[in-house]
Design a protein around this nucleic acid. Structure first.
Lengths: 233, 233
DNA sequence: TCAAAAGTGTTCACCATACACCCATGT
DNA sequence: ACATGGGTGTATGGTGAACACTTTTGA
């Protein structure tokens, strides 16, 4: 009975994270120099430990390397080409993560050999990490079009113009500010605060915050393709 | 340099496939009885071999067990809970597959201990295979709402009423046949044939076929959320 | 001739888009 | 006073949803 297990080859299992950040102007990915190829930039990564689940491991590695915690983390794809790591065969499960760049910027830069790169100006990457980043960008665009996850990249309090700039950056386009504002506010997901942003523009823009309660409702609402259907089995 | 590899624990890597089929009435999943727990139904699965990529392995296993080839296959998710397999720690990469049930039905049933189960009437499943099926159903619904992949579950030639029944089954609802027909035909993805279906209804419905050339265009068109943007980096 | 499924058209409400002007304030 | 970015309203076209009748043909 156990024989069928013993006959099988085991493989190394790595986790790599595509970490997105937004600095107010452009969408960035966090890259490091590490290990085997010290001259090549690569994604944050590490090995699965015996007592961990995959997402748990990805979160641990993220924390170990950056001190980031409580961030948006979603499994992207499992990469398993036999020759993707030329030294030892390794399967890598890639995760993508959205972080509030401002909270951690200094910590990351000082403690680790890490840098934010614009997604439009990436250096050559280790192994298949370039493919991982490409896929992560596609996935982010795909998801952000329907799910309200842009907030994960902004501070707790943010202005509508900031949010618009983020979406402009994600889609490499320029949305109409009137339509954008109406669309975002029509979700009722944002709560307007009394406070205004100071220092950036003369007039100052109102801060908004995500309404955590309504967050859940919205997450389901985008499924409106399906009319009066019973989604539960 | 190699030390950092040698210190790491390797893990067994399995592939499990959720295979969907449609018999004209309801959406089905193909399950088998195998290996460790002969009394429990499970997904089709097998082990990764040293010279294979993940999708390649999933395709091989699918072929070995069912004789199915050239089917729609898409990576679903990597499952890696430390205790998901109670005997030996195993990471499983799940794939979901869409097959034309009629072409292979007899072959599957005779050669292997396998059975089609309605997604609304599944038996208890091995390990976390129930979670895998749940996720696969969600993913199928999510994708089918925007991508034209329903055809993968039907014969080469099919009628609009057949297609509608398929979507009814996927979403467990009843679409309006007028709206459904208009929507499907407006994609220009289907070519009407001169032939009519015989034997099922008195009047008979026209057969249609997928226009392979237009298939690609459509696959991009659903991204119309993003106005005049340059998607390429 | 009748039963059963196939096929088709119109109206309405809503949403996405395009587009232009006034407002608040720091300099 | 003026320059800079913030904030809002309207008109139009297209799309999704609701809804009912005629057509074909095998029994």
């Amino acid at each position: 009975m156990l024989d069928q297990y013993k006959q099988q080859n085991p493989y190394l299992l790595a986790l790599d994270s595509i970490i997105f950040g937004f600095d107010g102007e452009s969408l960035k990915v966090l890259l490091v120099k590490r290990g085997v190829e010290e001259k090549t930039w690569s994604l944050m990564g590490g090995w699965l430990q015996p007592n961990e689940g995959l997402e748990q491991a990805a979160a641990r590695i993220l924390f170990d390397l950056t001190g980031l915690t409580n961030v948006y983390l979603e499994q992207l794809y499992a990469f398993g080409d036999p020759h993707r790591d030329p030294i030892v065969r390794t399967i890598s499960v890639a995760y993508f993560s959205l972080v509030k760049i401002a909270d951690y910027e200094t910590k990351i830069s000082e403690v680790f050999q890490a840098r934010w790169f614009s997604i439009y100006d990436l250096p050559p990457l280790l192994f298949d990490h370039g493919d991982m980043v490409d896929l992560a960008i596609k996935r982010l665009r795909y998801k952000a079009a329907q799910h309200p996850l842009g907030f994960e990249l902004l501070p707790e309090k943010f202005t509508i113009p900031q949010l618009k700039k983020l979406y402009d950056a994600i889609y490499n386009t320029e949305f109409d500010k009137r339509n954008f504002s109406r669309k975002i506010l029509s979700t009722n997901l944002l709560v307007k605060l009394d406070e205004k942003q100071k220092g950036f523009s003369k007039r100052g823009a109102y801060f908004y915050q995500v309404d955590a309660t309504k967050y859940q409702e919205i997450n389901n609402a985008f499924l409106n393709f399906i009319p009066n259907s019973e989604l539960a089995l």
